[in-house]
Design a protein around this nucleic acid. Sequence first.
DNA 1: GCCAACGTTGGC
DNA 2: GCCAACGTTGGC
Length: 155
Amino acid sequence: MNYWLMKSEPSVFGIDDLAARPKKTEPWDGVRNYQARNMMRDTMRRGDLAFFYHSNCEPPGIVGIMEVVREGYPDPTQFDPESKYHDPKSDLDDPRWYLVDVRLKKRFRAMVTLAELREHAGELGEFALLRKGNRLSVMPVETATWQRILELAGS
DNA sequence: GCCAACGTTGGC
DNA sequence: GCCAACGTTGGC
């Protein structure tokens, strides 16, 4: 099993929105970065777990855990002219963008803030989230890092 | 709101 | 294929 971290701006789609969805499940659409696309298309598997990270908000941090419930398939919003994620250059026969479906599994009692993560950076190994200038919205998390963060969450 | 970091685009 | 211009991300 692999572990991941997935970012979303709570003003666009936050953990409360996911909790309110039927079956607490949602297609993780709108990712328009090739590295993140590759991970969703090729590497993420049913049953993998992912931290839900709130970005571009005050304070940013990890708010809960999601489970991958459907593996990579084409993101339908790329073909929808009404969608803000519409990509006119994407070909129906060779879709450019992929997504996975995620289900909310656990909501942390208290967010593990980015500031807290930085305080514990020394114990978190190679953690891409803490690298300067990192903008990747879907990233792998090492098992040891995952477990240390669970401890920080007090769960 | 600012701006550093970084990805993408397009002219050449 | 280079690289300047531009757009976006996301912390602060």
